[in-house]
Computed example of a mutant assay.
Amino acid sequence: MRIFHIATRADWTAAQESGAYTTSTVDRSLAEEGFVHASRADQWEGVLATFYADVAEPLVLLEIETDLLGVPVVEEPPAPGVTETFPHVYGAIAPSAVVAVTPL
C-alpha cells in the first residue's frame, strides 16, 4: 500500500544522509509523538492546506511503500473524537521505503 508524508526538504535530505526519517509532523519528532503522521492519497492535500500552509521552507511529498517499511503502520484517528483515520507509522522510515519524492 502507498501512503504519503509531507516533509521539509531539509528533513528529507538529513534522512537520506542518516538512513532514517524521524520527523513526525511540523516541529515534532518521532520520539516526541510516538509515530510518524502519514496520509492516504485522498488526504495529503488537505493535510498540506491545514497544517503546512504557514511553512516557509521548501516541502516535498514522500510516497512510501508500506511493504518496504519494516515497522507497523496503523490506521487511527489523529485525536480523540475524530472519526476519520490516518496511517501512523510506528518507527523510523527507511529512505529505501520512499518510492517517489515530489516537490510541493
Rank of each mutant, 00 (worst) to 15 (best):
E65R: 01
P72W: 04
I64V: 09
F86G: 03
T50G: 14
E17K: 09
L59V: 11
H5G: 02
P78D: 14
A79F: 07
T66N: 00
V26I: 13
P58F: 07
S18Q: 14
S24H: 05
P78H: 10
I93N: 00
L62W: 00
A94N: 10
S24I: 04
G46I: 11
V26E: 06
V60A: 03
V26H: 10
I3P: 00
A10R: 15
V71N: 03
G46A: 13
A41D: 13
A14Y: 05
W12G: 01
L59S: 06
P78L: 14
A14I: 06
W12A: 00
T66V: 03
Y90S: 02
T83H: 09
E76Y: 02
R9S: 11
V26Y: 08
T25E: 10
D27Y: 14
L104A: 09
A10K: 14
H37T: 15
T50K: 12
T13P: 04
L61W: 05
L62P: 02
V71F: 02
A49V: 14
R28W: 15
S24L: 05
P103H: 11
F4P: 00
S24M: 06
S24Y: 04
L30R: 03
T23F: 05
R40H: 12
Y90A: 02
E57L: 08
V98L: 04
T8G: 07
V74L: 04
Y52F: 14
A10E: 15
L68F: 07
V82E: 10
W44H: 06
A41Q: 13
W44D: 05
V55T: 11
V73F: 00
T13M: 15
E63T: 12
T22F: 08
Y52K: 06
A53S: 15
A97G: 05
A94S: 13
L68C: 07
F35A: 07
V26P: 06
P80S: 11
H5L: 04
E33A: 10
R28Y: 15
T13Q: 15
S96C: 04
R40K: 08
E63N: 02
